[in-house]
């Protein structure tokens, strides 16, 4: 249900963005649509290039634009646990589940989102980590909490420490008033799956154009093979690992034989 509502909302918003009053068009391109995690992967910076063009030749371009790029990774459910001292030792006593939240979230802009548009717009378009919907399971309900909820704060902080959640107000640079580039930082433990890239252009605090792109992160080669085997052929994988241990042990005893 929620998924459908979001989808409809997104479609409506996109329709609004595609035919705004002022006719600007947004053209973007990613430096790489498919990021492969190989054995030497230690993170990667993707670059998004784009330009703001007049829709018809006669439309005059405005002098200043603002840009917000939102990158979301595959959805996942995470549990945030809180430790408390019980009988002198620290124990996980309480936990809150974050349901279907992005495993990767980067909100990149050319200046702080609060300066780009008014409070209402910023909240409605989920600009910034404070305004992004992070639904939690609270009893029977699933809802986002206030932004200074302790679990929400801890969740965003922990994800931020891993480089998975970020809000960078200087990641987008304008090369000319209409040509821009944005750096998307992918950490070494970036989740695997499909990523959505949503690009919004603002002028004078109003959304005037919007477009999206996508990229895919996959494990490649040997890593892919091992991870697939561990999941899909668990028994065989386990037996082979045990066999590998025996062979290693046997080789060692032959190589280092002293009699």
């Amino acid at each position: 249900m929620m998924r459908r509502t979001t989808l409809i909302l997104a479609v409506v918003l996109m329709a609004c963005g595609a035919r705004p009053a002022a006719a600007e068009r947004l053209v973007v391109s990613l430096s790489n649509h498919r990021v492969a995690i190989t054995s030497s992967f230690t993170g990667e910076d993707l670059v998004l290039f784009g330009t703001i063009e007049p829709d018809t030749a006669r439309t005059a371009l405005r002098s200043a634009y603002d840009l917000v790029v939102t990158v979301t990774g595959p959805r996942q459910t995470l549990r945030t646990r809180r430790k408390q001292r019980v009988l002198g030792i620290w124990v996980n006593v309480d936990s809150r589940e974050f349901v279907r939240v992005p495993s990767y979230l980067a909100i990149l802009s050319n200046r702080p989102v609060a300066q780009i548009a008014n409070q209402d717009t910023v909240r409605r378009l989920q600009m910034g980590l404070d305004n992004f919907l992070l639904p939690q399971r609270i009893g029977q309900d699933i809802a986002d909490t206030v932004r200074d909820d302790s679990y929400r704060l801890a969740f965003v902080r922990l994800e931020g420490q891993q480089g998975l959640y970020s809000e960078i107000a200087s990641a987008v640079t304008f090369l000319t008033p209409t040509v821009f580039r944005a750096a998307i930082p992918l950490p070494s433990d970036v989740p695997v799956g499909n990523f959505a890239v949503d690009v919004k252009v603002f002028a004078d605090g109003a959304l005037i154009a919007r477009t999206n792109s996508a990229l895919e992160v996959t494990k490649a080669g040997f890593e892919q093979y091992v991870a697939d085997a561990a999941r899909d052929h668990a028994l065989l994988y386990g037996l082979l690992t045990a066999l590998m241990a025996l062979v290693t042990g046997w080789i060692a005893s032959v190589v280092f034989r002293r009699d």
Binding site: P74, T77, R81, I89, W90
Partner: peptide
Amino acid sequence: LVVRPEDLYSLRNVGFE
């Protein structure tokens, strides 16, 4: 176990979609 941990909160993945 006894010393107060640096961060009282921790995350665990419950499932990917």
